[in-house]
Design a protein around this nucleic acid. Structure first.
Lengths: 326, 326
DNA sequence: TTGAAAGCGCTACCAT
DNA sequence: ATGGTAGCGCTTTCAA
C-alpha cells in the first residue's frame, strides 16, 4: 500500500502539496497538480482513512443499533439508513444488540473508542440518560421516544385507532388486541390507541388484551388462549406484523376462516405482510422514510455540531388487504 | 476525551509506562501499575482505537457484504457472524450491496481505505479475480464458491437431491423446479441435484424447470404459469424458502390444496419457513454454523496471516413439515 | 505557490 | 523497571 510520501516522491513535490491536491485546498500550480494526480493514478494510491481520522477526529462512519436483526422490520429500516448515509459519504456499522442491555452497553463503548461520528438507536434496552453520558451525536428511531432526544417515529396511537376502528367498521363485534412488551414504547402507544376506541363499548373488558413479545411464537399461543376463553372474538388487532402472521397461523390451525370468522390486522407494513396468504391488512409505517429521515437528522447533527434536538412524528397508513372484510 | 498523556500526567509516569499497563506488556512496578489504573478510572480513559490502528495496522473490524439484507437468510447469517466475531474481539461492518456490482466495488474501496482487517463475502456480483486484487483477507460464504478462495457453503447438490427424492417418495408423480438465477452458484447446484434425480424419469422434460429470482414475486408468477401449462404437476421444489413461500401463496390463490393436490418443498430453513401456514417442508442449511465457521476461518486468516485457502462443505438436513405428504 | 515541521494518540525501541 | 522519542500517514500552520 503506497502512502502520501510515495506519491510525493514520485511527483517530486512535498507531502504538503500532495495533501493539498487531495483535499483541493490551498494553492497548487497546475503543473504540480497534474504531476500529483498522475502519480496517484500510477501508484493506485488511496489515502489512509485511519491516519486521516486521527487528525480530523472524524471517521465518516455511523453506527446503528437494532434490537433484533432477525425481525424483518429492522433490515428494511437498516437498508434505508445505509443508503441515505452512503449518499452523504458515510458508511454504516450495523449492530445487533440482540435485546441485551449488556451488548448495547458494550457497543457504546466500542463506538466511543472507535470514534464513530454518531449513532442511530432503534433499540431500547438502555435508558436515554445512560446513553447520553456517552456524548455521541444521537438520534433515536422507532422504539425509544423521549422528549429530550432527536427522534423519528410514527404515529402509533393514531395507527392503532385506525386499525381498531377499521375492524369495527368492517363488521367486527368484539375486537381483541395482542400487544407488545410493556417496556417497548411503541407497544404502549398502540395499546393506548386501541383502548381509546374500544373503551366506550359495552363488550370491552381488559382481558381482551393479551401480552405478546412482538414475535410469532407468542402471538400463536396468545391467539389460541384468547379464542378459547372468548369465542365471541371476531377481530384481532396484532401489535405488529410478525404477530399478525402468528395470529393467522393460529387461526389456520384452529380451522377458523379469515376474514369470514375472524378479521386480523397488523402493524408495520413489512414485506412479509404481503408474502403470506391471505395477505395481511396492516397499518403501514413509512419505514424507508423513517430510516432516511433519521439518517439525515443525524448527519445534520454531526456536521452542524448542533445540540438542537428535533422531533419527527410520521403519519401511518391503513393498507387494506385480505385478512379483513371489505 | 482524555488521552494517554493525561493519564500519564495524572499518574506521574511516562506515556510509555501507561502504554505498558494498557497492553500488559513489558515490566512495570506494582506501585506504578496501580497509579496508572487509578488514573484511568478517574479520567474514564478509553484508548483511542484510531491511533492504535494507525500504528498496529489493525482495526479489529471485519466487513460483511450481503446481496440483499431484506432476504431473511442474510440477517440470520449476519447474526451468526456478528456474534462469533464479537467473541473474538472484532466488530462487524454489515454492508448491503443491494445486488449492485458498483456498490460492491465501491465497498471494497472503502474497506481498503478504512483498513478493515478482512471481509466476508456473501454476495456474488463481482468476480473473485476482481476481488482478489484488493489483497484483503477474504472468505466467501454461500453464494460464490470458487476453488481458490476460502469458502463455506452447504451441500446444495445433495440437498436438492434429497428434496426431489423426498417429493417422489411421498407420492408425487411429476415434480417441477423453480430455480434461482443463472449467475448464482447455489441456484445452479440445486438445479443440478434436481435434474440428476428426475432425468431418468419418463415424465421429465426441461420445461418443468422455470426461472425465478430467489424472491417471492417471481415465484408466484412462475407457479401460476407452470400449473397452467402442466396441470399434471403435483410437486414443486422451490430453489429457496422465499420462493417456496411464493409457491404456497400462488397455490392458495389458485385454490389448490397443500399437500393434497400439490406438495411443496423449499431450501434454506429460514425462520420464515415455519411462520407461514402450512409450515414449509424444506432443506435446512446450517445457517448459524455457516456464519460462525466463516467468521472463524477469516479470523484464522487474519491472525495467522496465512495464505492457505480452505474449503468447507456443510451437510444439509431435510425438515419435514406440512407442505408435503407423509 | 511551496515545503518543513509540528502534531493527532498510540506503540515500541533504545537508553539508562 | 522506566522514560525519551521516533514514527505510523495524514493535515495544517508557518515561513519563505
Amino acid at each position: 500500500m503506497s502512502t502520501i510520501k510515495d506519491v510525493a516522491n514520485k511527483a517530486r513535490v512535498s507531502v504538503a502539496t500532495v495533501s493539498r491536491v487531495l483535499n483541493d485546498k490551498g494553492y497548487v500550480s497546475l503543473d504540480k497538480k497534474r504531476r500529483v494526480q498522475q502519480a496517484i493514478k500510477v501508484l493506485n494510491y488511496k489515502p489512509n482513512e485511519i491516519a486521516r481520522s486521527l487528525f480530523n477526529k472524524k471517521t465518516d462512519t455511523v453506527a446503528l443499533i437494532v434490537p433484533d436483526i432477525t425481525n424483518p422490520f429492522f433490515p428494511e429500516l437498516a437498508k434505508a439508513i445505509e443508503e441515505t448515509l452512503n449518499t452523504f459519504g458515510y458508511t454504516l456499522m450495523l449492530c445487533n444488540a440482540n435485546e441485551s442491555p449488556e451488548k448495547e452497553q458494550e457497543y457504546l463503548n466500542v463506538f466511543k473508542s472507535k470514534h464513530v461520528d454518531g449513532v442511530i438507536l432503534a433499540s431500547d434496552t438502555l435508558s436515554i440518560e445512560n446513553i447520553k453520558r456517552f456524548k455521541l451525536p444521537l438520534v433515536v428511531i422507532d422504539r425509544s421516544v423521549r422528549k429530550n432526544v432527536s427522534s423519528v417515529f410514527s404515529d402509533n396511537v393514531d395507527g392503532a385507532r385506525q386499525a381498531t376502528r377499521f375492524l369495527l367498521k368492517t363488521g367486527c363485534k368484539v375486537v381483541a388486541h395482542i400487544r407488545g412488551p410493556k417496556h417497548v414504547i411503541t407497544a404502549n402507544e398502540r395499546y393506548k390507541g386501541y383502548v381509546e376506541v374500544v373503551k366506550p363499548k359495552c363488550w370491552f373488558h381488559e382481558d381482551l388484551v393479551v401480552m405478546g413479545n412482538y414475535d410469532m411464537k407468542t402471538a400463536v399461543s396468545a391467539t389460541i388462549s384468547l379464542l378459547n376463553k372468548f369465542p365471541e372474538i371476531d377481530g384481532i388487532f396484532a401489535g405488529n406484523d410478525i404477530m399478525g402472521v402468528g395470529v393467522i397461523k393460529a387461526l389456520h390451525q384452529m380451522g377458523k376462516r379469515i376474514p369470514e370468522d375472524i378479521s386480523v390486522i397488523g402493524f408495520d407494513g413489512i414485506g412479509l405482510s404481503e408474502m403470506i396468504y391471505p395477505e395481511l391488512t396492516t397499518i403501514a409505517q413509512p419505514i424507508y422514510k423513517m430510516g432516511s429521515i433519521g439518517a439525515r437528522m443525524l448527519i445534520e447533527k454531526i456536521e452542524r455540531e448542533t445540540e438542537k434536538e428535533t422531533w419527527n412524528k410520521l403519519p401511518v397508513q391503513l393498507v387494506k388487504r385480505s385478512t379483513t372484510n371489505t
